[in-house]
Design a protein around this nucleic acid. Structure first.
Ligand SMILES: [Mn+2]
Ligand SMILES: [Mn+2]
Length: 732
DNA sequence: GCACAGC
DNA sequence: GCTGTGCGAGTAACA
DNA sequence: TGTTAC
């Protein structure tokens, strides 16, 4: 997009400023000081991130659909979009439906940018290669944008190799640092201490850490922007070796200001506040710290040496630091107070620890993240005692950092164990904090039942909860979907065939139609994962066949559907009683459930081998018999007009490829009602199908169990019933 | 939900 | 990018 | 053959 003569014409042309809260842009604030950038998180039809760079009085904008990756190997598409006015630097708000870019726009990152190498943006744009040095709350270090040949608007965005490279592929997972004030790294802080020592206790608001026996240290770093050229630079230098040539070149390539800063840094850029000496022993720790994913950091931790029994040994530590003994130092880190110009002390501890975890290099060497257990204090205390470790520190997860003795921390004494129990320090530090393999739900907050506040996530949760009881009724059956991507009031579409774009974890079976002999793939839902995948497709209910793969021509049950379509439910109840009485009268044991909407379904589980035609004829006889005996409230007429307010006794679904919803599926009607199996003695006129909903069914299921279970076990012969049915027909 | 064409 | 659009079933009874 | 209902 070549810049127009009036650069914001494009921007203004797309927007109606009477409707959108976005700034029209006028006399933009003149650029003073550092060049700014902003990244908006834009929940438009498709979530994406908009990178906007201040340039010649406007914001040069790129949309990045897949967000930012810390790995240089991940190239992300960035599409050049129209320039935005400078006022957009601080814009956040909701663009109304119908406007350009409708959806929530939030500031995801902001900070300053320098265009490398010479801060010459115009030249870089001409060449189609931008190198940006970002100093934001989330995006740091050098990023690279390269224009693609095939499409001038398309660029590739990727991380340049520097200390900020990391394993993260997903921008969305980064910790939100918007609450951290910008401030210089504090010169002096009092170290935080537990105010009291207490017995083990359990508190879900606490993070429990091991209280390690070592030397508490506060680590301050002032590192160069690039990582060191090689690992082990400090160890080599202390050993008398020269500085690597490549490292010198990298240093020379940096700007003058960087060289000046480097003069002010200590030799290594790492200071251990309040720790004298031990330089040689600390060299591997310093080398590891040189790889931190931050230049300026203030970290809290404890230096430890493992004794012969693997437990921290304070006496040995002192000897090692004094150079009188050899041993490998470990630095356990448990807090971060400052991160590249951001004062993290106001943030909750759990966020600070997340930042710290993210800050450690991929190859941390002797640096360890002191992990925690959430809530389970007494349990961890027992494990700690068993490992022969001295105790725990319980810290309030929500507390900001406070120096000196603080009530936010409590030291927890654990009873000392006998010396025979042992355990390695590393082994005992198991992380449990956030391991949850949850399948991704797209649009989890989409209201599927808007009146009931039931979301797509709720639907998926419902299916996860009933999977055990529902899956047997789906096993091996082709299943159709009635998809409602826009909720129960939105446009629906029915889907029988697997198309290219659907999740490939779904099992399929090729089935030919009656006239169309070309087999088409149908869904088969055999496990929780595929059940949840169907729910994620906004398939509110499911529509399995009555027959299974391998015997597709042979239904496993007969079904009669009582459909009121406006008729009183009391009539449905009376007819269901009739159907039940008739079926029992000819020796069958029928099952009953609500349809989940306004009707009732009566099932008879069948022995193997009956064809659809036989079953349909049987149901037709039953339906006609019942309808004839109550002509004022029942009909077998298919035509809506001919029904005249009577209940439709539908036997026509006993057909290959036809479906009736199984028990335990929710229906796309207000109330989020569920198809609910009933005991026959529940069939009274005060029965209210609307009582069985996504919210009430779990309790009912727990109390009554699966009332439909006989469907799969109580399989019945039709011949005797057919014989007796003929008698009934003859005798009236 | 997604792919496509068009801007 | 962003928007708009189209696409996603099959059968059988009956007029 | 198109329409209607599931
Ligand atoms: Mn956008
Ligand atoms: Mn029905």
């Amino acid at each position: 997009m070549a810049r127009a003569r009036r650069p914001l014409d494009d921007y203004r042309g797309k927007r109606d400023f009477g409707r959108t809260p976005e700034p029209a842009g006028g006399a933009g604030p003149s650029s003073a000081g550092a060049t700014r950038f902003v990244v908006h998180r834009h929940e438009a039809r498709n979530l994406h991130y908009d990178l906007r760079l201040e340039h010649e009085g406007a914001l040069l904008s790129f949309a990045v659909p897949k967000g930012f990756s810390d790995r240089p190997a991940d190239k992300r598409l960035a599409v050049r979009t129209e320039d935005h006015p400078l006022e957009y630097l601080t814009f956040a708000g909701r663009i109304p439906e119908g406007e350009y870019g409708a959806g929530a726009m939030t500031v995801w990152d902001e900070g300053t940018v320098r265009w490398l190498p010479d801060d010459d943006a115009a030249a870089a744009l001409r060449e189609g290669e931008l190198k940006l040095l970002l100093d934001g709350r989330r995006l740091r270090g050098e990023w690279h944008l390269v224009r693609t040949k095939p499409d001038e608007r398309h660029w590739l965005l990727f991380k340049s190799k520097d200390r900020y490279v990391g394993p993260g592929r997903d921008a969305a997972r980064r910790v939100d640092l918007s609450a951290a004030p910008r401030a210089p790294l504090p010169k002096r802080v009092r170290r935080a201490e537990p105010a009291e020592t207490v017995a083990p206790f359990t508190d879900p608001e606490r993070l429990y850490e091991l209280d390690l026996d070592g030397r508490r240290v506060l680590v301050e770093t002032d590192l160069p922007p690039d990582g060191p050229a090689t690992r082990g630079a400090t160890a080599a230098r202390i050993g008398g070796g020269p500085r690597g040539a490549s490292s010198r070149e990298a240093s020379a390539a940096r700007g003058a200001s960087s060289r000046e800063a480097s003069a002010a840094r200590g030799a290594t850029g790492v200071r251990f506040r309040g720790l004298r000496g031990g330089r040689a022993a600390l060299a591997p720790v310093v080398d590891a710290l040189a790889l931190l994913r931050a230049r300026r950091a203030l970290l809290d931790g404890v230096l430890v040496v493992q004794g012969p029994d693997d437990r921290p040994d304070r006496a040995l530590l002192d000897e090692v630091l004094a150079g009188r003994a050899s041993g490998d130092l470990l630095l356990y880190l448990f807090d971060v107070l400052h991160d590249d110009g951001l004062d993290l002390r106001p943030l909750p501890l759990r966020d600070r620890k997340a930042v710290l975890r993210d800050m450690l290099p991929e190859d941390p060497g002797p640096l360890l993240f002191l992990d925690h257990v959430v809530g389970a204090g007494e349990e961890l205390a027992r494990a700690t005692a068993a490992a022969g470790l001295p105790g725990l520190v319980a810290k309030r997860a929500d507390a900001p950092w406070r120096g000196g003795p603080t009530d936010d921390w409590s030291r927890v004494r654990v009873p000392s164990a006998d010396a025979t129990s042992r355990g390695s320090v590393r082994e005992r530090l198991r992380l449990d904090a956030d391991a949850r393999p949850a399948p991704r739900v797209s649009n989890p907050d989409k209201l599927l039942w808007p009146e009931d506040g039931v979301t797509k996530q709720d639907l998926v949760d419902w299916y996860a909860g009933v999977a055990d009881v529902l899956l047997p009724y789906l096993a091996d059956r082709p299943v159709h979907m009635d998809r409602r991507p826009d909720g129960i009031h939105g446009k629906a579409f029915y889907q029988r065939h697997v198309t290219e774009s659907l999740p490939d974890l779904l099992a399929t079976v090729e089935i030919a139609g009656r006239d169309d002999p070309a087999p088409k793939p149908h869904f088969v839902c055999g496990d929780v994962a595929s059940l949840l995948a169907l729910a994620n497709l906004a398939s509110i209910d499911l529509h399995p066949w009555h027959s299974r793969v391998g015997s597709l021509e042979s239904p496993d049950w007969a079904v009669i559907d009582l459909d009121p379509k406006g008729a009183p439910f009391a009539h449905v109840v009376r007819l269901a009683k009739d159907v039940g009485r008739l079926l029992r009268g000819i020796g069958l044991r029928p099952l009953l459930k609500t349809s989940g909407k306004t009707g009732l379904h009566v099932y008879v589980p069948l022995a193997e081998g009956y064809g659809y035609e036989t079953v349909r004829m049987f149901c037709e006889a039953v339906a006609r018999l019942v309808a004839r005996s109550r002509p004022e409230i029942a009909t077998v007429e298919r035509s809506l007009a001919a029904r005249g307010g009577r209940v439709y006794v539908d036997f026509g679904q006993n057909r290959r490829g036809a479906t009736v919803v199984p028990p335990y599926v929710p229906r796309p009607v207000p109330g989020a009602t569920v198809s609910a199996p009933l005991a026959w003695d529940e069939l009274e006129t005060d029965l209210t199908p609307a009582d069985f909903t996504i919210r009430t069914m779990p309790d009912r299921l727990a109390e009554r169990g699966d009332l439909f279970a006989p469907l799969l076990t109580d399989r019945q012969e039709l011949e005797p019933a057919l014989a007796r049915l003929e008698e009934v027909v003859r005798d009236g």
